[in-house]
Structure formats: C-alpha cells, structure tokens
Design a binder for these strands. Structure first.
Lengths: 129, 129
DNA sequence: GTATTACTTAGAGTTGACTCCAAGTCAAGT
DNA sequence: ACTTGACTTGGAGTCAACTCTAAGTAATAC
C-alpha cells in the first residue's frame, strides 16, 4: 500500500504520515527496493492505532515513548503497561472534566432557551399594543 | 482582587489572565485609578467560565466570539445560543470518541496484564529447574 | 530616600503538532 | 526522448496558545 492510499484510508495527510514515522510514532515502514514506502497490514495497524490515540489527545511524545519501548521487545512489557495505565488515567480524568462541562453547557443552553422565549413573548405583546 | 490572587485562585498564570483579557476571552477587567486590575466577583466568574471551557477544549477563537456577542447585548441571544449548541455538539462527539479510546486502552492494558503474568510463570518454571 | 515588590504595557519567543517547499529520483505514457 | 505524476529527503514555515522579556510606574519596608 502506498503512502497516498494509506492517507486516503485513514484521513491523515501524507505529510503527517511521514512526520509520524520520522518522529517515531510508528515503527519504520516497510520499503520497496527503490526506497518508496509500501505499507503492510501491520504498518496500517500502527497508523490506525496512532490516529486513534492522537484523536483522544495522547501526545506525540508519549506515543513515541511507547513505540521506543515496543521496539526494545518483551522485557519492556511492564513499562509499556505502566505508560498505558498512566495515559488511561489521564484520559479518564479529561473525559470526566469534559462531561461536567458538557452538562454545564447544556444547562446554559436551557437558560438561553427560556430567555429567548421570554423575549419573544415580550415582543408579541408589544406588537399587539 | 489582584491579578496574582486570581491567578492563585484559579491556577492560571498572570500572563494567561492578561492574555485572555487582551484577546477578548473575558470582558475588560475592572481597574483601580492607577490602572491596576481589581477583579470583581463578576470578573472572577468570567475567568472561571473561560477556564472551564478551555479545559474542555473550546478554542480561544470561539470563546472570543461568544464574549463579543455577549458585549452586544440582548439582541444576540439567539446567536449566542447557536454558538453554544454547536460547541456542545462538538464536545459531545469528542467525549464519545475519547470514551471509545478509553475502552480500547483498558482492553489493551488487560492484554498486557495477561502477558506479564504468563511471562512471570515462565520465569518461575525456569527457576525451579 | 532608596530598595523591594507587585503591578503595567508592547512585543518577542517558545512549544506542540503539523504543513509546506525545493530539489531530486524513478517508472509509465506518448 | 521527454513529460507527467507519485514518490523521496531535509528543512523551513505556520498556527494556536501561551510564556517570557524589557522597560516603566507606584506603593510599601527599612
């Protein structure tokens, strides 16, 4: 799979895909003899994983660390798990904060609705006079 | 209330507070004769609101727009409500995406736990031999 | 009366995460 | 043979959101 196909498949620009690889967010992508990237299913899996994690707000830095540990093999299992747990906890907290803000926005919108209705009533009354 | 007190109260740097005011994220703050900021309860309320919204990921730009509409008074009620609804919807989507990623992270962590246990068993067996 | 401390401003610098650009290679089509 | 188009690289540029700096003022402590 070429880089532009992968770009189309996951909705990431080719620049972003190259940047992710260069930054070490995904392991080095498989190449053809001439040096052109030829994404395997595994490569695509990494792209999808990184897209998902970035979408949830995990930083480039932490994902780079994860891949670096992954590249060191089995003896980093515990470290990788610890990293994931830390990020999971942070994500959970952010979600909870966002849920509170969502509730607050909903309440605010309700208040606006009431105020708008009240305004319209006033205008109607004015119109009748 | 001075800017550094407000900074302490809400955990925002004084630079950030001045930046928010300059950028129009909060209405102009009350001043003493000598030009020094003297935050009223209302000013603090705005700071808290902006902190909350920024914490949930609403952009500087959209919050600036909201304040600009607010400053124009009652005739912008509907526009303000529309803006809030749009941001609410975006927030909701982001939360849903993050919840899916949270679930995925939890599953991944479970898999790591199992692999780590399996590894330890192997090591123990090796030790017995 | 001077040193310290907290404030003021305009504007420059930093960080994270891309995004774009120039210059070059290579295979395919006419 | 030559153009076209997709790829390659290193490195520069951009954007949002701060964060810092320099130069200055004004009240308070010694």
């Amino acid at each position: 799979m070429t880089i532009s196909e992968v770009s189309g498949k996951y909705g990431l620009s080719v620049d972003t895909l190259r940047y992710y690889e260069k930054a070490g967010l995904i392991p080095p992508v498989n190449r053809k003899e001439n040096g052109i990237r030829d994404y395997t299913e595994t490569d695509c899996g990494w792209v999808e994983f990184v897209k998902c994690m970035r979408g949830a707000g995990l930083s480039i830095e932490v994902l780079t660390q994860y891949i670096a540990l992954y590249a060191k093999g089995n003896r980093t299992l515990q470290k990788r798990k610890n990293l994931l747990v830390a990020e999971r906890d942070r994500l959970k907290e952010r979600i909870e904060q966002m849920q509170q803000t969502l509730k607050r926005l909903n309440d605010k919108i309700d208040v606006y609705e009431q105020r708008i209705v009240a305004c319209e009533k006033k205008l109607l009354k004015g119109g009748v006079q």
